[in-house]
């Protein structure tokens, strides 16, 4: 029987744009910048092309999930910490911004940055005890906190109890709201992409690759893990702080596990370790889950089917698949 195998060759233009010579021609320049421009321009015009206010709101929610997904991808695939703490980050950031706004009267655009930084500090402190450990402990502890917080708020009737905190100021208008979250997604997406290639980012990746060698290099693993958790929880807290000003309400549902699970699903669909992939994953998953809202609880089934389909047939994720098609020619050759 004749045997064949798939051969993959880099496209000529890919090789030419690897070096400095890329700036020599427009064709090569556009090959390099086009994918990025499509993403940036695409995100920026999204609010204009949405048919209704309802769908414009969905865009804001997509962006908040995108922040969470990038933060999950950073921790899981560049530092080696599998985080189920999306709900914790959203909750801490959300409640902080809500308190800052209602009790101290800070306007949203001041309360959000404060809640981001302070929330990231709180989340890092909460997760600090399990950072020296290797293995599943980080995932367990980060999952436990949001569950515990819900019960604490319910039982002690603090932070507005089961009713939540109401009367939170919204963004000045819905355009500012949408462009604020979209710009934040772009800022953090490209910022994190930059970070993982900086020397600091290399150290973080080294912690995932081989933590003992990092210790032998005279660096504390716990410290660098804490740095990564701080950056990543800052993204989550920012999302949480935005969400309370979008809904003008802060309640126990901020600690809902959707915020932990959906970013992971988006990362699977989009392509793990690509950072852009998770954003694409959110752009697909969140609207799909909105479309399926009419089916009620049955939407979970559709949702699961999509996930299973992706995991079985395209486990590499859209982004990895797309990058390969963009950069390489595939053809069948005789063995």
């Amino acid at each position: 029987m004749e045997q064949r195998r798939k051969e993959r060759i880099d496209r000529g233009i890919k090789v030419r744009t690897d070096g400095l010579y890329a700036v020599m021609s427009w064709r090569e320049l556009s090959y390099l910048t086009m994918p990025r421009m499509v993403l940036i321009v695409g995100l920026l015009i999204l609010p204009f092309v949405m048919p209704s206010m309802y769908w414009q709101r969905v865009i804001s929610i997509v962006c908040i999930y995108a922040l969470l997904a990038v933060s999950f991808d950073l921790l899981a695939h560049f530092v080696g910490l599998v985080s189920l703490g999306g709900a914790l980050f959203i909750g801490v950031g959300g409640y902080l911004s809500a308190i800052m706004n209602t009790s101290f009267g800070f306007p949203p655009l001041l309360a959000i940055p404060i809640a981001t930084i302070a929330g990231a500090g709180i989340c890092t402190l909460l997760l600090l005890p399990c950072l020296p450990l290797r293995g599943v402990y980080f995932a367990i502890v980060s999952l436990m906190y949001p569950l515990a917080m819900r019960r604490v708020i319910e039982a002690l009737d603090i932070l507005g109890g089961t009713d939540g905190i109401m009367g939170i100021d919204s963004f000045p208008n819905r355009w500012i709201e949408q462009y604020f979250v979209i710009l934040m997604v772009l800022l953090f997406l490209f910022g994190v992409r930059r970070l993982v290639n900086l020397d600091l980012g290399l150290v973080l990746r080294a912690v995932k690759d081989n933590d003992q060698a990092v210790r032998a290099s005279g660096m504390s693993i716990t410290f660098y893990k804490a740095v990564a958790v701080f950056i990543s929880s800052a993204m989550g807290c920012l999302g949480g702080a935005c969400i309370v000003h979008i809904y003008m309400w802060s309640g126990m549902s901020l600690f809902a596990l959707d915020f932990s699970i959906l970013p992971i699903a988006a990362t699977v669909i989009g392509g793990a370790g690509t950072l852009v992939g998770p954003v694409l994953g959110c752009l697909i998953l969140v609207p799909v889950s909105e479309l399926l809202r009419e089916f009620g609880t049955l939407r979970i089934v559709f949702y699961s089917l999509i996930l299973v389909g992706f995991i079985v047939f395209r486990s590499e994720g859209i982004m990895v698949y797309g990058q390969r098609k963009y950069h390489q020619i595939e053809r069948w050759v005789k063995v």
């Binding site: 020397d199 290399l202 990746r205 080294a206 690759d209 081989n210 003992q212 060698a213 005279g218 660096m219």
Partner: peptide, 21 residues
């Protein structure tokens, strides 16, 4: 115990980033 996912010279960026270096 090298960092397998990095090129050889990038392996040294990590110790060079340490406080001692």
């Amino acid at each position: 115990r090298p960092y397998y996912s990095l090129p050889a010279y990038k392996n040294l960026v990590i110790p060079l980033y340490s406080p001692r270096a």
